[in-house]
Amino acid sequence: MQITSISTPTSLETVLERIFAIGRITRSDQQVLMSTLLSKEDLNEKELQQINQIFDRIKRGLLKVVD
């Protein structure tokens, strides 16, 4: 299994916006977010807040995870 990494903040922003817009997250999206969080890249406050919102919505069952 290959984990994709986000190379630019714009890419991360695009992924986050799409997840919020459609109300679903793919396993690939989830891997990208985890990889971004675990990378050495600095995330701004807004990005961290959005990522936390996504994982909170997954835990609460408000965001559907699809393959």
Rank of each mutant, 00 (worst) to 15 (best):
Q2P: 14
I3H: 12
I3P: 11
I3Q: 15
T4V: 06
T4M: 09
S5W: 08
S5E: 03
S5Y: 09
S5A: 12
I6M: 01
I6L: 01
I6R: 00
S7T: 10
S7M: 12
S7L: 13
S7G: 08
T8G: 05
T8E: 02
P9Q: 02
P9H: 10
P9L: 04
S11W: 01
L12R: 03
L12W: 02
E13Y: 00
E13P: 01
E13D: 09
T14Y: 00
T14S: 07
V15Y: 01
V15T: 07
L16D: 01
E17S: 10
R18Y: 08
F20P: 01
I22Y: 06
I22C: 12
I22M: 05
G23C: 06
G23T: 13
G23D: 10
G23H: 03
R24P: 02
R24V: 13
R24G: 02
I25L: 11
I25R: 03
I25C: 15
I25F: 06
T26E: 10
T26P: 05
R27I: 09
S28I: 10
S28N: 11
D29T: 15
D29F: 08
D29H: 10
Q30T: 03
Q30F: 10
Q31I: 03
Q31D: 14
Q31K: 09
L33N: 01
M34W: 10
S35N: 15
T36M: 13
T36Y: 02
L37H: 06
L37C: 09
L37F: 05
K40R: 13
K40N: 08
K40Y: 10
E41S: 14
D42Q: 09
D42E: 11
D42P: 08
D42A: 12
L43Y: 12
L43W: 05
N44E: 03
E45M: 15
E47L: 01
E47P: 00
L48R: 07
L48G: 07
Q49K: 13
Q49L: 05
Q49F: 11
Q50C: 06
Q50P: 00
N52P: 06
I54G: 09
I54H: 03
I54Q: 04
F55C: 04
D56C: 05
D56I: 02
R57G: 05
I58Y: 00
K59F: 08
K59W: 04
R60P: 01
G61K: 14
G61D: 06
L62D: 12
L62M: 07
L62P: 05
L63R: 02
L63F: 06
K64I: 11
K64N: 12
V65P: 07
V65F: 08
V65T: 14
V66G: 14
V66C: 13
V66A: 09
V66T: 14
V66K: 14
D67S: 15
D67K: 13
D67F: 09
D67H: 15
